[in-house]
Amino acid sequence: MKGILLINLGSPDSPEPKDVKKYLGEFLMDERVIDVPLWARNLLVKGIILNTRPKASAKAYKKIWWDEGSPLIVLSERLQEKVQEKLDIPVALAMRYGSMTIKKGLQELVDKGCTEIKTIPLYPQFAMATTETIDVKVDELAAAHFPQLKITRTPAFYKRQDYINVLSKSIAEQLDGLDYEHILFSYHGVPERHIRKSDITNGNCKMDGKCCFKKGSPQHEFCYRHQCEITTVNVAKKLGLKNGTYSTTFQSRLGFDPWLQPYTDRTIERMGKEGIKKMAIVTPAFVSDCLETLEEIAMEGEEIFHEIGGEQFTVIPCLNDREDFAQVIANMAKEWTVDEKPATV
């Protein structure tokens, strides 16, 4: 029997410093998140970050925590339930980090009789620190604990026609009747070196933004920057946005190494200084609202914008548990069961 395993990032068990510290330790010690030698990662994470950041992060989590728990977990569970309603094969949910482990998710499906499992990372765009680390972890767990399982991976779905349609619709609904001057597409940032490490052409990417738009470049399959840029382009085309009324930025940088630019916070500040009074912002690298969207964007971003003279700051929710997005995920499962290819843009 076949089964589906949805996999999202994860969350602390609570917004208390001890749980946040445990979660950050697991997350930041992942060699595909902070990709430096183990001794340096230990020094940075265990010697510095875990001694300084958990309290501040806990305060941020408390600002966005729901009565039901972590927004990311709650929304992911709601999505899983809706996807299950649309399919006649088992659908389980797991997180890359935290107590809802991938091992538990695989075991749940095995206990239901599944011998073939399709993993669906809930990230539209591929990145070392998201999709790749999930794929590697699944392979490790399958080899060690579930050698009888046949695992099928799901490629990045940023170019799926149904995904672009749903993302565009969700934005259009929020912008309907809204007077805005600029819409910012803010994606989670990654260090520039991650882009180079994912370049299967071994050096074709020059980090100048030009190769992102060259058709047929083989590295695009694993280039996060390209996939973010093309997501914006396809949505803008679908919505009929005019050049100059939208742009792509990157948020959540960490440390002092160069990360993908332009940075979201600095762009918000710059546009406010340039006289933009009404801005909308969408975060297409996330499918579930979480700390980075609810606190970093909806709270910190709005504060920056208002402090610099901005007046209207509209944050567009993630796709979360929308019925039409649940259908997109269900479509991925159905295509797998009948060996069909999706329509892309």
Rank of each mutant, 00 (worst) to 15 (best):
L5V: 13
A330I: 04
L178V: 09
V138R: 07
Y97M: 11
P155Q: 11
P90A: 10
V315K: 07
I316H: 04
R253K: 15
A40C: 05
C228R: 03
G310Y: 01
F286Q: 08
V328D: 01
V282K: 00
N331P: 01
V45C: 07
S168I: 05
D289E: 06
Q227R: 11
S70N: 05
Q251F: 05
S70M: 03
I316T: 03
D139M: 15
V190N: 02
Q161L: 13
P342L: 09
D324C: 04
P12C: 12
E31F: 10
V235L: 06
T248H: 08
G98Q: 09
G3W: 12
L178F: 06
P218V: 12
V166G: 04
S247H: 02
F313A: 03
G105Q: 08
L178S: 03
V45F: 08
P54F: 06
K18H: 12
D67G: 00
A326K: 02
K237D: 12
Q84E: 09
N202L: 14
D30A: 08
Q227M: 09
S288D: 05
I268F: 01
N202P: 02
L184Q: 00
Y180F: 07
T130A: 05
F185H: 00
V136M: 13
P90E: 08
I316V: 13
P342Q: 06
E311F: 09
E81D: 02
C228N: 11
G98K: 01
L79V: 10
L175Y: 02
A60M: 12
L175G: 00
D176M: 14
K150N: 01
I200G: 02
T231G: 05
V91I: 12
V328S: 01
S217G: 10
S14D: 04
W336M: 06
M299A: 05
K237G: 11
E307L: 15
Y263P: 01
E311M: 12
T232D: 08
T133Q: 04
P262M: 03
P90V: 09
Q80H: 06
K210T: 07
G113R: 14
V74T: 04
C318N: 12
E221W: 12
L6W: 10
L38Q: 13
P191K: 01
T337P: 01
C318T: 13
R193C: 00
P342R: 12
S288P: 01
N331G: 05
A127L: 02
M207K: 10
I49Y: 02
L106T: 08
P218K: 14
M95N: 10
D88P: 00
V138L: 13
Q312Y: 08
F256P: 01
T231W: 03
P90M: 10
T154I: 11
K118H: 09
K150H: 05
Q312N: 12
I102T: 13
I200Y: 03
F157N: 08
E116R: 15
W336D: 11
F146P: 04
F313N: 02
G3K: 14
L141Y: 11
K214P: 02
T131I: 10
P284T: 04
L5M: 14
S99K: 14
V190F: 03
H194F: 07
W336Y: 03
T249P: 01
I200A: 07
Y187H: 13
E296H: 04
K214I: 14
D139Y: 15
F222Y: 14
S168E: 09
I200R: 04
L291N: 02
G177W: 09
